[in-house]
Amino acid sequence: MEADNLSRVYAILSTYNKGLDELRKGYRFVWRIGQPLFDAKRESEVMLTNFYRHPAYWERGMQMEPYPPRIEALNRLMLASRYQGDQSPLEIDYSFSHLGTCWPNPGNLLNPSVYNYGFHELPYPVFPPLLPEVPVGTDVFIQSGQPVPVDRIWEPVKIRQDRLLGIIPLGGKEVANNGCFNYLVSGTQAPRIAEYNEAASRVEQVDKHWRLLWKDDRYKDGVIPDESEYFHTPDVVAQKPQKANDLALEVRTGEVCPVSGLWAAKGYEVLPVLLTVGTVMPNLMVPDNFSEQRVHWVTWHLVKPD
Rank of each mutant, 00 (worst) to 15 (best):
residue 1 M to T: 10
residue 4 D to P: 03
residue 15 T to R: 07
residue 19 G to K: 08
residue 32 R to Q: 14
residue 36 P to N: 11
residue 38 F to M: 07
residue 55 P to T: 10
residue 59 E to N: 07
residue 59 E to S: 03
residue 60 R to G: 13
residue 60 R to M: 10
residue 65 E to W: 08
residue 67 Y to E: 12
residue 69 P to E: 15
residue 69 P to G: 09
residue 74 L to P: 04
residue 77 L to D: 13
residue 89 P to D: 02
residue 104 P to G: 11
residue 112 P to N: 03
residue 114 V to C: 11
residue 117 Y to E: 07
residue 125 P to F: 13
residue 129 P to W: 08
residue 141 F to Q: 01
residue 146 Q to I: 01
residue 146 Q to S: 13
residue 147 P to M: 01
residue 147 P to T: 02
residue 151 D to I: 05
residue 154 W to F: 02
residue 154 W to M: 02
residue 156 P to N: 12
residue 162 D to F: 05
residue 164 L to N: 00
residue 169 P to W: 05
residue 169 P to E: 09
residue 177 N to Y: 11
residue 180 C to Y: 04
residue 180 C to L: 04
residue 184 L to E: 06
residue 184 L to S: 03
residue 187 G to Q: 08
residue 189 Q to H: 11
residue 192 R to V: 03
residue 198 E to R: 05
residue 198 E to Y: 14
residue 203 V to H: 05
residue 205 Q to T: 12
residue 206 V to A: 01
residue 214 W to R: 10
residue 234 P to G: 01
residue 240 K to A: 13
residue 241 P to M: 01
residue 241 P to A: 12
residue 243 K to S: 09
residue 245 N to R: 04
residue 248 A to G: 15
residue 250 E to I: 03
residue 259 V to H: 06
residue 262 L to G: 03
residue 271 L to N: 12
residue 278 G to H: 01
residue 279 T to M: 06
residue 281 M to W: 06
residue 281 M to S: 01
residue 290 F to H: 08
residue 295 V to E: 11
residue 296 H to Y: 10
residue 302 L to I: 08
residue 304 K to I: 06
